[in-house]
Write a protein that binds this DNA or RNA. Structure first.
Lengths: 136, 136
DNA sequence: ATCAGACTCATACTTTAGTACCAAAACAGT
DNA sequence: ACTGTTTTGGTACTAAAGTATGAGTCTGAT
């Protein structure tokens, strides 16, 4: 929040400077007034784009990014996470084992631990929960 | 696409008019030049916001809408689709049966048909394929 | 009225999934 | 070198999931 205020402050300052600069540039004849206006227009156009992107970022984050902190919080190990990804690809335990070069038994152990860490009863439920927690 | 061109054409026209208008307004002394610049800035700000929103809309649409036509193409019945939704919620066959007021056997039949229609070997794979086809 | 398609359910199996418990090797940090 | 965690994997079960087959019911369309 502090960051936001500082950024806005600097932004407004920069804009005022831009205004003043273009004003004097026009008056002193160094700059065509059309170009000055065009510059201002372009700057504000990009400010609009930027702010809009910022405000939409929260929503897109919810719909697309991985919450690495949550994975740590749940104490999900690297290997368990790889197994989770395998599940999300629709693979069987045996197929995940082949993919990760370990036995099916090992995958079963990982899956079982994963389910208890995610509080899930089934692998499909684990997927649902994992999506909710934004970890896949 | 035609629509886009027309919209852009009108937009550019409107901007040129705005430019000319503010120019003459300033020259004739009806308008303070600072206010004219501010107006242009505001207009371009909102243009930036609008275009950005438009360009992001496609992505969100792609990532969120259900392709009803595909469901028909795959000959997935209404009931089968409800079962698919149950699977995506992480429910067991028995739980889906309870939810839809039918027996577990019925759900098994639906699931089996669903899997063959989606070319999946497991329910988790069915989920993956269904997401790919944008039907869930 | 008939007929195809959808929905229902059962039985009998086979195959995966998942649990519990144990235990050894591999590793990273102190 | 010691220690705790991760990773590995096995056995022995139990519980789900999935297949195959058959069959009765219910609709909407011809």
């Amino acid at each position: 929040m502090k960051k936001t205020i500082i950024v806005f402050g600097l932004l407004i300052l920069a804009l005022l400077l831009l205004f003043q600069f273009s004003k004097y540039a026009v008056i002193s004849g160094d700059l065509n007034s059309e170009i000055a206006i065009a510059l201002i227009a372009i700057v504000f156009f990009f400010i609009g784009v930027y702010l809009n992107k910022k405000s939409l970022q929260k929503k897109t984050t919810i719909l697309g990014e991985i919450n690495h902190k949550k994975i740590e919080d749940l104490e999900i190990s690297k290997r368990e996470y790889e197994v989770l990804l395998g599940i999300s690809e629709g693979l069987s335990n045996k197929e995940i084992g082949t993919k990760l070069f370990v036995s099916e038994s090992t995958i079963k152990t990982h899956v079982s631990n994963l389910l208890s860490k995610l509080n899930a009863k089934r692998r499909t439920q684990a997927l649902q929960i994992a999506k909710d927690l934004e970890i896949i």
